[in-house]
Design a protein around this nucleic acid. Sequence first.
DNA 1: CGAATCGTAACATATAAAGTTACATGAAAA
DNA 2: TTTTCATGTAACTTTATATGTTACGATTCG
Lengths: 130, 130
Amino acid sequence: MTSDQLSLCLGTNPVVVRRSMGFLRRAKIVCSDRGHAGGWRICRDLATITLRDLYAALEEPEVFALGHRSEAPECLVEQAVNAALDQAFAEAEALLLQRMGEVTLADLAEDFTRRHAARSARQGEHTHDT
Amino acid sequence: MTSDQLSLCLGTNPVVVRRSMGFLRRAKIVCSDRGHAGGWRICRDLATITLRDLYAALEEPEVFALGHRSEAPECLVEQAVNAALDQAFAEAEALLLQRMGEVTLADLAEDFTRRHAARSARQGEHTHDT
DNA sequence: CGAATCGTAACATATAAAGTTACATGAAAA
DNA sequence: TTTTCATGTAACTTTATATGTTACGATTCG
């Protein structure tokens, strides 16, 4: 698909798509072809790509919205709070990343297919009714 | 302490302090007194206040920086991704909140005291050297 | 009364994410 | 070879949000 097509699907802008897909290209998850009939392709087996890979490739801001105000604060109160929460944040992040690592694009494709069939069935029903 | 004093400690603005402390007041964690000699007081035993209580009271944006673009998307791809991650997010958030619920302000006060003593000792040493 | 303090509305500023424009580069088709 | 259609990317604009600021009313104590 081209950046223009993707931007329509995603309700955004082609340049924004190129910006994000660029990260995936550098991570060797997608390939891009320039020129006529060019665009974006997934260049690895869907079963080998996990949501964790995508997250890592996109370098999204951070897992948590909460975080330290500063990494090595002089303030002793802040130091105490950081010390108390560092472990908790690390554990929660590790858990989340592990779960993301367990979901492949192949899994999602399968689920999508199921959902698509279900929607089609519902629409068929509805068409039959009217 | 007054909002002005707190804002100096925190490197921010007195109105910002009132805004945040207002949430803690509504959660009955702190009390405020107006007028002369007024200001803010913690109005519960430190051992009964956890970081989770503070987080809940402050209604911070969200635990995670990542999240759903929309809660009930029409897009089937988005539905599949949400379904795959909902459980993971819920687990990680529960773990984090549990850990936050295990840390009381009394714990933090104790840790602060220890750090303060350590710093004083280091400064004493240093003074002794020079 | 008057100074000190919170409560809150209204407005200003800063920052980052997203969107936009513009154009160079590259590749296939005519 | 020229045209057309893509990506790659820099520069700028817009938008959203958190933060900071000003202003002033309400309350309390001396």
